[in-house]
Computed example of a mutant assay.
Amino acid sequence: MRFKSFCGALLLVLLPSLGNAAPLRIVLTDSNTMPLAHIQDFQLKGGMLFELGNAIAQEMGRKATFITLPRKRIAQALIDGKADLICNQNQAWLVGPFDWSKNFIPHVELLVSNQNQVRPMQMSELSNIPIGTILGFNYVEMRQQLGNQFIRDDSLGPKNNLLKLNAGHVNHIIIPQYILEYQQKLGNLKVKIHPYLVIKDQPAACAVSRSGQIKLADLNRAITNLEKRNKLKPIFERYR
């Protein structure tokens, strides 16, 4: 009886500490739009990154908190340990001393062109032609193909690039497929477009701060466990 009483008392002591695990601090760029993120008053309220972050946090026994920042401040926030991770990234986009998870987030990057222009069949045909891009984003493949003849026309986010395409300010934009298709469903693409060029088809990952509160092995374990129980695929498919 004394042993059972001791175990009961020990459990009561441990339970509060287990329930008070530090929150999983997930940072994302404030230029994100649906279906990735519904941001209102600088707070993430919904979208794919919201569901994904909450699923990962819950699998790790934590609660997710989301921090929205301008793209150029993301890397420093991770380096300083002010955030634990960012998802839907890759090492070419986000340069820094980070640990990287497995690639598991579907990502297809497209070049979309207005039908009032000759359809480009390859990226090399776009030398010295303005292309709608996102401020602070690193377009590795375009720079490799076009070099100094890659002419950027930066906006704060992909939705702004769609507006520029609609208004005729640019005739070509670079946009992720899931954002294009989601905005098309909402009727936010007003012009007819050519069949698009695929710039990159490579799953994205999460970057982990080396000064944060989690370890890469724990994150990868959580991702693998969620995949085994088929918890991630339905999230991605809801927003495609």
Rank of each mutant, 00 (worst) to 15 (best):
residue 102 K to M: 09
residue 99 D to E: 14
residue 107 H to S: 09
residue 24 L to A: 11
residue 15 L to Q: 02
residue 156 L to G: 13
residue 87 C to K: 05
residue 61 G to F: 05
residue 239 Y to W: 03
residue 108 V to Y: 04
residue 235 I to H: 06
residue 182 Y to P: 05
residue 87 C to L: 07
residue 229 R to F: 08
residue 137 F to Y: 15
residue 88 N to M: 03
residue 46 G to S: 07
residue 23 P to Q: 11
residue 12 L to R: 07
residue 203 P to K: 06
residue 171 N to K: 11
residue 43 Q to C: 00
residue 180 L to Y: 12
residue 211 S to G: 06
residue 122 Q to A: 13
residue 151 I to N: 02
residue 97 P to G: 12
residue 107 H to V: 01
residue 114 N to R: 15
residue 113 S to E: 14
residue 79 I to V: 12
residue 74 I to Q: 13
residue 188 N to H: 07
residue 133 T to A: 14
residue 55 A to Y: 00
residue 16 P to Y: 12
residue 5 S to N: 05
residue 21 A to W: 14
residue 110 L to H: 06
residue 57 A to N: 09
residue 111 L to R: 08
residue 209 S to E: 09
residue 233 K to M: 02
residue 130 P to W: 11
residue 121 M to G: 13
residue 220 N to G: 05
residue 175 I to K: 06
residue 160 N to P: 04
residue 94 L to S: 04
residue 90 N to F: 01
residue 237 E to G: 01
residue 206 C to M: 07
residue 13 V to Y: 05
residue 204 A to H: 03
residue 107 H to T: 08
residue 83 A to V: 00
residue 191 V to P: 00
residue 125 E to Y: 13
residue 222 A to V: 01
residue 35 P to L: 11
residue 156 L to K: 02
residue 133 T to H: 14
residue 59 E to G: 00
residue 203 P to R: 02
residue 50 F to Q: 04
residue 46 G to H: 00
residue 179 I to P: 05
residue 221 R to W: 08
residue 200 K to N: 14
residue 32 N to D: 00
residue 231 K to Q: 04
residue 93 W to D: 12
residue 37 A to V: 01
residue 137 F to V: 14
residue 210 R to N: 15
residue 175 I to M: 03
residue 31 S to W: 10
residue 97 P to D: 15
residue 217 A to E: 08
residue 208 V to I: 15
residue 190 K to D: 02
residue 58 Q to L: 13
residue 118 V to D: 13
residue 88 N to W: 02
residue 81 G to D: 10
residue 188 N to L: 08
residue 236 F to Y: 09
residue 188 N to S: 05
residue 55 A to P: 07
residue 108 V to S: 08
residue 196 Y to A: 09
residue 214 I to S: 07
residue 228 K to Y: 00
residue 204 A to K: 03
residue 58 Q to T: 11
residue 35 P to C: 02
residue 162 L to K: 05
residue 194 H to G: 12
residue 52 L to N: 02
residue 231 K to N: 06
residue 109 E to M: 13
residue 13 V to E: 09
residue 214 I to K: 02
residue 77 A to D: 02
residue 119 R to K: 15
residue 109 E to V: 10
residue 77 A to I: 01
residue 30 D to F: 06
residue 180 L to V: 04
residue 151 I to S: 00
residue 35 P to M: 04
residue 151 I to Q: 15
residue 100 W to I: 10
residue 224 T to Y: 11
residue 21 A to E: 09
residue 154 D to W: 03
residue 52 L to S: 04
residue 30 D to I: 06
residue 151 I to A: 12
